[in-house]
């Protein structure tokens, strides 16, 4: 016998799992593009959790129709999630633009390499010896 599994629990597990996967990806990725993807996954998990915070198993979508309806779900989290999703899209687009420019500037999207080059550039601009020990920051067209 397969124990009865409620769809709500599956959704909750999915939301929390997405957040965990995303956070793990954020911490462990060595590639900037993967960092962006991990951020997107984390946001998806948080959005799913938010929409579930107003969910009722026994209720219908909050749209008034001619048919006799039952109880409706809470419309507020749905509106909030709509907002949060669009915010996420904007942030991800900007992040991709930045990744493109970083690749153009440094020729690499490796997290450690970009970090080192950034520190070098900042030190060079301030007129300090470079932290990486190089003579001058490597130039990339």
């Amino acid at each position: 016998m397969i124990p009865e599994l409620h769809v709500g629990w599956v959704l909750f597990a999915g939301a929390i799992g997405l957040i965990a996967i995303g956070v793990g990806g954020l911490l462990m990725s060595r590639d900037l593009f993967r960092v962006v993807l991990a951020l997107a996954i984390t946001e998806a998990g948080a959005n799913l959790l938010l929409v579930l915070s107003g969910y009722r198993f026994d209720a219908i979508a909050p749209i008034v129709t001619n048919e006799v309806g039952g109880v409706m779900v809470d419309p507020v989290p749905q509106a909030m999630v709509l907002t949060a999703i669009v915010i996420g899209v904007g942030v991800q687009a900007l992040a991709l633009g930045l990744v493109l420019r970083i690749y153009r500037a440094y020729g690499s999207i490796d997290v450690a390499e970009v970090r080192r080059r950034m520190d070098d550039d900042i030190a060079a601009e301030a007129g300090l010896p470079l932290p990486s020990g190089r003579e001058k920051p490597a130039v990339h067209s």
Binding site: P62, I63, V64, T65, M72, P75, V76, Q78, A79, M80, L82, T83, V86, I87, V89, G90
Partner: peptide, 23 residues
């Protein structure tokens, strides 16, 4: 008729303005 729309543009209309501003 769509109550989510009432929330998005009515009760929480300012959020929606903020959101298009973010985009």
């Amino acid at each position: 008729a769509n109550i989510v729309t009432s929330v998005v543009l009515g009760y929480r209309g300012l959020d929606t303005l903020g959101e298009i501003a973010i985009l």
